[in-house]
């Protein structure tokens, strides 16, 4: 469903991605690991269209369509989702209202009728339970004053509501205590299905004990230096990244 071909990208004048090629099929869970500054967070931002990055060459095909020329919101409505490493705070914007707006944008795209706040409230209750969040959480401003763990759970809640075809989870495990990590993993596992691709971007093997990947990639200095199955992650845990570099 996603085909990345020899992707190069830079921020300002600094090249970050230096030739990434990667194919993700429906139903697969991929993990992208690598040391700090390897470009793994950049990859998910470039694919979702963050304006700070310039693609200098290469292609990204999503379900056969080159998406690099599309605005980020168009890509999102095609079914691409990014759970942010550092979700930004948006003061004054109601969390439930925001989520409904996003949900309706997708429905509109699919020619479906928009849902009103009452219908949406019903829909969201069950998803709230999955991430073990209290309903009053929806009444706050988006991410404002949320703890690190609440922000990450809110990202996963958004994924559950928007039902993307392909989800990048960018260091969703960082800053989570063991209970929160368990909750988040349970929710992601519940979302796993044959038509959905999931990409876990992470530093640590710890997350992969909960969400088991089909493929593990190691990135360093803007390229993928090694791919393998889940045992690769265990090897990294043991030996660090040094032996690969």
């Amino acid at each position: 469903m996603l085909e990345i071909k020899n992707l190069h990208a830079k921020i300002n004048d600094t090249p970050i991605l230096k030739g990434i090629s990667l194919t993700i099929k429906p139903g697969e869970v991929h993990a992208i690991m690598g040391p700090n500054g390897s470009g793994k967070s950049t990859l998910s931002k470039v694919i979702s269209g963050h304006p700070a990055y310039d693609v200098t060459s290469g292609e990204v095909l999503f379900e056969g369509q080159n998406i690099l020329e599309l605005d980020p919101d168009v890509r999102a409505r095609l079914g691409l989702f990014l759970a942010f490493q550092y979700p930004v705070e948006i003061p004054g914007v109601h969390n439930a209202g925001f989520l409904r707006m996003a949900y309706n944008a997708r429905r509109k795209e699919n020619g479906q009728e928009e849902v009103d706040p009452m219908e949406f409230d019903e829909l969201i209750r069950s998803k709230l339970n999955l991430v073990e969040m209290e309903p009053d959480f929806l009444e706050r401003a988006v991410n404002q004053g949320f703890s690190g763990g609440e922000k990450k759970r809110n990202e996963i809640l958004q994924m559950l509501v928007l039902e993307p075809k392909l989800a990048f989870l960018d260091e969703t495990d960082s800053g989570l205590d063991i209970d929160a990590l368990r909750i988040v993993s349970k929710a992601v596992n519940a979302y796993k299905k044959p038509e959905v691709g999931i990409v876990l971007v992470t530093h640590y093997q710890r997350l992969l004990n909960y969400i088991v990947p089909d493929v593990v990639h190691v990135m360093a200095n803007g390229v993928i230096i090694k791919s393998g199955d889940k045992s690769l992650a265990l090897a990294l845990e043991e030996k660090g990244y040094e032996w690969l570099l």
Partner: peptide, 28 residues
């Protein structure tokens, strides 16, 4: 910030709607 607008867009909301929503929140 650019990141706030991008956050909206990544959730499928257009830049215009993002802007209007943030401003509306500020001015409500």
């Amino acid at each position: 910030s650019e990141d706030q607008i991008f956050y909206f867009q990544q959730r499928g909301i257009s830049m215009e709607d993002a802007m209007a929503t943030i401003i509306n929140g500020f001015c409500k």
